[in-house]
Amino acid sequence: KFGRVHERAEGPAKILAIGTATPFHWVDQSSYPDYYFRVTNSDHLVDLKEKFRRICNRTMISKRHMFLTEEILQKNPNLCSHNEPSFDVRQDILVSEIPKLGKEAVLMAIDEWAQPKSKITHLVFCTRSGVDMPGADYQLIKLLGLSPSVQRVMMYQQGCFAGGTMLRLAKDLAENNKGARVLVVCAESSAIGFRGPSEDHPDNLIAQALFGDGAAALIIGSDPKMGLERPIFEIVTTAQTFVPNGDCHLALHLREMGLTFHCTKDVPPTIAKNVESCLIKAFEPLGISDWNSIFWILHPGGNAIVDQVESTLGLEPNKLQATRNILREYGNLSSACVLFILDEIRKKSGREGLKTSGDGLDLGVLLSFGPGLTIETVVLR
């Protein structure tokens, strides 16, 4: 008597548009150690500064975009301390800036989509910054002038794996609601975790050397309108798992001094060791076991992770080039990073006149991972 209210779509979910945005301000990685130790009044920690310089040199990052300028840091000195309470200051900045950054990426996506924004039916927003109620999803709806009846899902504090999570959720929403057009937004800022150095917490140096700011937005829907919408990728399958006891290797915690970062040297080999089982589960039903026969979007948690995944799986050097390019130009953008790589690989395919948006290949994989050593596996066509 009370059956399904919403009719299912006929076809699989497809990515119809991609937009990205970054803050205008950026830092050069080669000179960042001098800048970082100067603005945090830590130049007296000579040995720690040299250690940080070595870490920065190993990241293979060229530059990173950041909202925090020297002027902002001078006005808010607690942000430059390692342990002073600064959460309220971070909140005041990020509750406002995260939706604005997301808006810039959304406008780029809508411009490519070339359809009225009134056709957006759902919003899925993800960030690890600016936790608030009502959330960044609500603020973004107002900034864009979208209908208050847009169906919203707000996900805070997920971390680097969440780019894949957003695709998984959007696929379910698009395929189970005929005519749905799902706006996916990942907006991230390193301002939540920026803090001064400490000899007692070397993990913090890794975070300060890796993370950048950026937002990515996608429009996802099934059954694209012929002649009006141009699909870029099809989302074939999605899956999530985590490595048992992985939280002892990688975890982040909200504290009075901001978001703290805990990471062990076992993260790269542990991820590399567990990736292939995810690939087998995803691609065995499709008859694929040659990992060089697919295109790759791999989250660059750090250069060591990229190198070890490449080595463990025997990947050809060009397979992870898009990942390395984004890491070099932006650093680790947390949940937004794989979506930047997705954009990079389709643009490169277009520039080179390849037959598909995925490096000329039919199928590919998007792998994202993060806290708890959670792994998201997304098969794309």
Rank of each mutant, 00 (worst) to 15 (best):
E234Y: 01
V124E: 02
T40I: 11
A17Q: 01
D132N: 07
N292K: 12
E112I: 05
G372T: 12
G11K: 15
L146Q: 03
K347A: 00
D111F: 06
N303W: 08
Q91D: 11
L279G: 04
W26I: 10
P371W: 01
L313Q: 13
S30D: 02
N57A: 12
S334N: 15
V338G: 13
I280Q: 11
K103L: 09
T238Q: 05
R324K: 07
G364K: 03
W113L: 05
N325H: 06
K14I: 10
N274D: 13
L45T: 12
G287R: 07
I235G: 03
L143D: 14
I280T: 08
A304K: 08
N332G: 06
C278L: 13
I110G: 03
H44S: 02
H25P: 14
I72G: 09
I232F: 07
P371H: 12
L73D: 14
S31T: 09
S349K: 08
L94S: 10
E316Q: 15
E376V: 01
C80W: 11
R64M: 03
V95E: 13
A304Y: 04
C248T: 09
F233L: 10
V309D: 05
V275L: 15
R346H: 00
E10V: 11
G287Y: 00
F369C: 13
V243Q: 13
P300L: 06
V27A: 04
A109R: 06
A282S: 01
P285Q: 08
L320V: 04
S293G: 04
D343G: 03
C56L: 05
A322E: 11
F295K: 10
P317S: 10
G364Y: 02
V378W: 04
S349G: 08
N325L: 00
L254Q: 14
A304D: 14
E112W: 08
W296T: 07
P285R: 13
E84P: 04
F283L: 11
L315K: 10
Q308T: 13
P268S: 11
L380D: 15
N245V: 05
K51Q: 12
A21N: 04
G246Q: 10
M257T: 07
E234C: 13
G353L: 03
V39R: 05
N292I: 05
G130I: 02
N41F: 03
M257P: 13
R58W: 01
I235W: 04
T237P: 05
P244Y: 03
T270P: 10
R351S: 04
K100E: 10
Y36R: 00
I110T: 05
L146G: 03
Q115M: 09
D266G: 09
T312Q: 05
P268N: 06
Q321E: 02
S368I: 00
Y138R: 11
K273I: 04
E10K: 08
T59I: 03
I15W: 03
L143F: 10
H253T: 10
D359C: 09
I235F: 01
D359L: 11
T237I: 10
R255A: 15
C80S: 11
L45G: 09
L333T: 09
E84M: 01
M108P: 04
T264E: 14
P231E: 15
L254Y: 11
D88S: 11
A13F: 01
G246E: 14
A282V: 13
C263D: 15
E310T: 03
I288S: 04
K1T: 14
I232R: 01
E352W: 06
H82E: 14
T270M: 08
I326N: 10
F125S: 03
S293M: 01
R4L: 14
V267E: 02
P231D: 05
I120Y: 01
K281R: 08
H82A: 05
G287V: 02
T69R: 02
S81N: 09
I271F: 05
P300A: 14
H122K: 10
W291L: 12
R328I: 06
H6W: 09
S42W: 02
A304R: 02
L320G: 04
Q115L: 04
V309R: 07
V365R: 15
V5K: 08
V27W: 02
D290S: 07
S147K: 03
E84W: 06
I341S: 07
V106T: 13
M60W: 01
I141A: 12
S335R: 02
E7T: 03
D247I: 00
Q74K: 10
P231R: 01
G370V: 12
H262K: 14
I93L: 13
P268D: 00
V89K: 14
G145P: 01
A9L: 04
P285F: 06
Y138L: 15
L123A: 03
I98D: 03
A251C: 09
A282K: 00
I271S: 05
V378N: 15
Y35V: 02
S334P: 09
L107P: 10
D92Q: 11
R324E: 01
T241W: 05
I288A: 04
R64K: 08
F37I: 14
G360D: 08
S42V: 00
L146R: 05
I141D: 03
F295H: 04
I110W: 05
H25F: 15
F242K: 14
P12I: 06
A114V: 08
T237S: 14
C80T: 11
V365L: 04
L342V: 02
F233C: 05
G130S: 10
C278M: 02
E234S: 01
E276C: 07
I235K: 01
P116C: 07
D307W: 03
L140D: 11
S118P: 11
D359E: 13
P317H: 06
L101M: 08
Q321S: 03
L254G: 11
E310P: 01
V309F: 10
T69D: 05
P285C: 15
H25Y: 10
V124R: 02
I341T: 08
S293L: 06
L252G: 15
K265Y: 02
P23T: 09
V365K: 15
V309M: 04
P134S: 09
D28H: 03
R53E: 05
K103T: 05
A17G: 02
T260E: 11
G130A: 12
I341W: 06
P300I: 15
F125T: 13
D359N: 08
K63A: 03
D266C: 10
V46S: 03
K355G: 03
A251V: 00
E7W: 02
C126S: 04
D111P: 02
P85H: 05
E344V: 05
L252V: 08
K63P: 01
E112V: 03
H253K: 11
R230K: 06
M108D: 06
D362C: 00
F295W: 06
M60F: 00
A105C: 03
R8C: 12
R58S: 13
R328D: 01
F87C: 12
I326G: 10
Q240R: 01
R346V: 09
L16K: 01
L107T: 08
A322W: 02
L320I: 12
A239L: 04
R230G: 08
L279V: 07
E329I: 00
E7K: 08
P244E: 06
L250M: 11
I232H: 07
F125N: 04
R351Q: 11
L48V: 10
T121D: 06
V131F: 05
S368V: 01
R54L: 14
V39D: 11
T377Q: 15
L228N: 08
R324C: 04
L363Q: 15
S368K: 05
Y138G: 02
S42M: 01
D111V: 03
L366W: 02
